[in-house]
Design a protein around this nucleic acid. Structure first.
Length: 596
RNA sequence: GGUCCUGUAGCUCAACCGGAUAGAGCAACUGCCUUCUAAGCAGUAGGUUUCAGGUUCGAGCCCUGACAGGAUCACCA
């Protein structure tokens, strides 16, 4: 039984024995004591005054006394207004930490037998990744790791949009202006090379439109009739007809892009277990349309187009198959949905996709549920807001897009300059220094992008993201480094951990010891997370931080049962502040200097 | 226009199931480098939580209505 459970059951008994009132333990809850007051857990009395028929203070005193004598975890209490603050016996914490320290699988919950797929990244193969992709990638990877720690078997997937008119645009431009350029000959990363031609297409296409409009065509007509656009359309048809030359060019250019993406993913530290390509999936889903018609979920209009009526669910009618029998976006997505299930028998499926597609996924999920899919209730759209720049919205046409590779490099460069300025690399080898810049730069970026509530639109200020002060990744890394330093010192001078109440702590690895100290310091926040479950998770997060420094986990409201993992993440972050150092030193019996 | 999301300090963001005096950082101002590492610490100042009602012991959070910003509403993806 956890500390929290012991208290709750104690309160339940108190109501039984003192007030002769049966109360369900699930209806009782504790909250963290605010830091201004003494105590760890607080029980709010207001809503129970009808039962106790006593003033708040008297009610609190009765329950507090009961807990003190009838549980082995509460050592004392105080009542302020209607708040009963409970003080936990130190031994209870020590037992907890001892148990934690002996747990070989710190932070890893037992397998729950469920499989979940997290689809994220999902780039187009016609241009390089940009800032928006970074938020997506870090979120997706973080969620996948969180789910893993919670005992899910996780499959990270990437659905690459590798076909369609936009790819053909790059291909057409390459044929026109390419001069047989390759990543090797141009010195450009593959994705950047292909992106260059996409931009070239757009420029040339625009001037063709202008020309046609000058010759008297309507804007709409000009857009359709511009020779370049016609060529792109033609190429798409050839592609769909499996024209060998077109396919060969497509494969070559896609290969370049994939190689380019791989590099970027590697630097970001994200990875995938499974790639899906739209070129392989774009024809899927038609059988589901048939199935839907049979089941009466879909209906046909006179022109042969197939629709779903979701007006009973608060949405509109939605097209699922064109009159000419060809697919639309959602047809394909239905097919891919089933494909994922066929491949892995997943229980849950998470889509990390921007919030401009909220409606699309709402429709998709409702359809799959109407079709009675076993994974229907496990479908989840992890929707996130756009990333804005101080200059306004990112627009590729206006060249205000922040390129991912450029940004990653800039972060690392800034880390390097700043580190050198501060003279922090004395005694480092060149390799160590390079590694440090990488860790700092990536940590800064990841933390900056992950610290904002995913569903909120956020502002990316390049200046601030590279700041190393305040609520930033490097600050957390710095705190960790100092803690590690303290513990090294403590080691040297032979601190007797047992006197600080840490039985067996000296048998732990130093990094694990950090964790225990931090955990102890932040006991107040820990209890909300549940005594033996979330602290372990927190420990894992912190341990990972101490190993790699730059792994951060997103705080994501995902699935209903995951409140605790969200909590754990919050605690982990707040625990890693420099204030920890002070308390850590006290616990280790090191004299705390005045000015700290 | 319908639907959805957002609105908290000058700026960027927090606030756990509705709980106590709404918290951080940046920017401003005061102090602190013989101690573990100043990428730091301690402190000052900064709020009618967009507005108006409602629900209740209690509302930034729930409900209604305004206002502001954004997204979406294609036989596009």
């Amino acid at each position: 039984m956890t500390i929290e459970e012991k208290i709750l059951s104690g309160i339940q008994k108190a109501f039984q024995e003192i007030f002769a009132h049966e109360i369900n333990q699930d209806d009782l809850s504790l909250q963290p004591t605010r830091k201004e007051f003494e105590g760890t857990y607080t029980f709010v009395l207001f809503s129970y005054l009808k039962i106790t028929k006593l003033a708040p203070e008297a009610s609190g005193a009765k329950i507090g006394d009961f807990l003190k004598t009838n549980t082995d975890v509460v050592s004392d209490y105080n009542v302020v207004k209607g708040f009963l603050n409970l003080i936990i016996r130190e031994e209870a914490w020590i037992d907890l930490f001892t148990a934690l320290s002996q747990n070989k699988n710190l932070g890893q919950l037992p397998q729950n037998g469920q499989k979940v797929m997290v689809e994220y990244s999902s780039p187009n193969t016609n241009k390089p990744l940009h800032l928006g992709h970074l938020r997506n990638n870090f979120l997706g990877y973080s969620v996948a790791e969180i789910l893993k720690a919670n005992g899910y078997e996780v499959i990270k997937s990437n659905l690459v949009n590798d076909r369609g008119i936009h790819i053909c645009k790059s291909m057409v431009a390459y044929r026109h202006f390419g001069n047989m350029e390759t990543p090797e000959s141009s010195g450009l990363k593959g994705d950047h090379l292909v992106g260059k031609y996409y931009v070239l297409f757009d420029k040339a296409y625009k001037s063709q439109i202008l020309e046609l409009i000058e010759k008297g065509q309507s804007e709409e007509g000009a857009k359709k009739n511009a020779p370049l656009m016609r060529k792109a359309q033609e190429m798409l048809q050839l592609w769909e007809a499996n024209d060998p030359e077109v396919i060969a060019l497509w494969e070559t250019m896609n290969y370049w892009v994939y190689a380019g993406f791989e590099k970027t993913y590697k630097q970001m530290g994200v990875d995938f277990d499974k790639y899906y390509q739209e070129s392989q999936t774009y024809l899927l889903g038609k059988d589901i349309v048939e199935e839907g018609l049979e089941k009466g979920v879909f209906f046909k209009k006179e022109n042969g187009s197939v629709w779903v009526d979701l007006s009973d669910e608060g949405l509109d009618e939605k097209l699922v198959l064109r009159g000419d029998g060809t697919s639309v976006y959602i047809t394909q997505d239905m097919g891919t949905c089933d494909l994922k299930y066929r491949d892995y028998k997943i229980d849950k499926s998470v889509y990390v996709v921007g919030n401009e597609q909220d409606y699309h996924f709402d429709v998709l999920f409702k359809i799959m549920r109407k079709l009675g899919r076993p994974y229907g209730d496990g479908l989840y759209h992890l929707s996130y807001g756009m990333v804005d720049l101080p200059s306004g919205k990112m627009k590729s046409r206006e060249g205000t897009v922040v390129d991912a590779d450029d940004l990653l490099q800039e972060m690392v460069d800034t880390a390097e300059n700043h580190t050198k300025e501060l003279g922090k690399i004395e005694g480092f080898t060149a390799e160590q220094a390079t590694e440090l810049y990488e860790i700092l730069g990536m940590g800064a970026l990841k933390y900056f992008l992950l610290k904002v509530d995913p569903k909120k639109r956020m502002l990316f200020n390049p200046q601030e993201s590279i700041e190393f002060q305040g609520n930033t990744g490097p600050f957390i890394q710095y705190s960790h480094a100092r803690i590690a330093s303290i513990l090294r010192k403590a080691d040297q001078i032979g601190v007797d951990y047992s006197t600080a109440g840490f039985k067996g702590i000296d048998k732990l690895e130093p990094s694990e010891r950090d964790l225990i100290v931090i955990l102890y310091d932040f006991e107040k926040k820990l209890k909300m997370a549940g005594d033996d479950y979330s602290p372990a998770l927190i420990a894992q997060y912190l341990f990972d931080l101490s190993k790699e420094y730059n792994r951060f986990y997103a705080e994501v409201p995902i699935f209903h049962e995951s409140r605790e993992e969200v909590q754990a993440f919050r605690v982990a972050l707040s625990a890693l502040t420099a204030k920890t150092i002070k308390t850590g030193m006290k616990l280790l019996g090191i004299k705390v200097p005045e000015r700290m």
